[in-house]
Amino acid sequence: MVDGKAGRGMPRSKEILNLAISIGEVMLESGGEIYRVQETVSRVLESYGIEDYHVFVITNGIFATVHEQREDAGSMVRYVPIGEVDLQRVAAVNQLSREISAGECTVEEAYGRLRQCKEGARPSKWVLILSGGIGCAGFGYLMGGRPYDSFFSFFLGMLLEVFLLVTAHYKASKFIVNILGSALVTAGSLALYAAGTGVLFDRVIIGGIMPLLPGVSMTMAIRDLFGGDYLSGSIRLIDALLTGMCIAIGVGAAIKVFQMLGGGVLPL
């Protein structure tokens, strides 16, 4: 992993390659586009005087070689599982690579800066839970809910965010998280409906499943396909489609169970 000490005893070219790939890795796992990662790695290598290099990036891996024809040849492969979107890191690492290419940063300094980028402040759990609630309430309102329905979306959104944080902690499978998450929202909304609160349960559900929707995968798929990275774009596209299907399964299953429990036919 990224560590300034890892550079000791390595040829200089390898040290630079390690830095460049580590910067690319942080960017890729936090939600950077393929072309941006590729460009960043190349830019860092060039800024430190490496001319003969090859970089290949896909959604979950980086491959690169430097100075293939020379004594100090180096090559590296990094497996980068799709991680949690963290746009602050993408922005910070992007800034770092700009400074490197402006020649304002030595290799050793860059390692230090990269470590800072990785440890940068994150919003606390409470802030995340609260914004999950606000997001669901807001989108529930946009999708035709009344303020009264948004009020309930708010609490379901917070509940969903707690669920997402817990499952992220146990590294649960994405499929299970999406199915159970959307089932949780649907069940909560139907329970409110059955309790006689008079909510428009469909609007509450639509607002509630918002954080699960594959907006990120879809955006990334388009950007990657547009950049000519067809393989990476397809990976993202499949991810988006499967996520959508999982949400549909979760919602459908919860409605079915509700009906079997005697909830009757739901009005539209």
Binding site: V85, V90, A91, M143, I209, G215, M218, T219, I247, L268
Partner: peptide, 24 residues
């Protein structure tokens, strides 16, 4: 990076309602 604005902005357009009614 433009991703910062694009990813956050796109959610108001993503067809969540359509997905729900399809499943329903």
């Amino acid at each position: 990076p433009s991703t910062v604005f694009l990813i956050t902005g796109i959610f108001s357009l993503v067809p969540g309602a359509g997905l729900y009614y399809t499943s329903y």
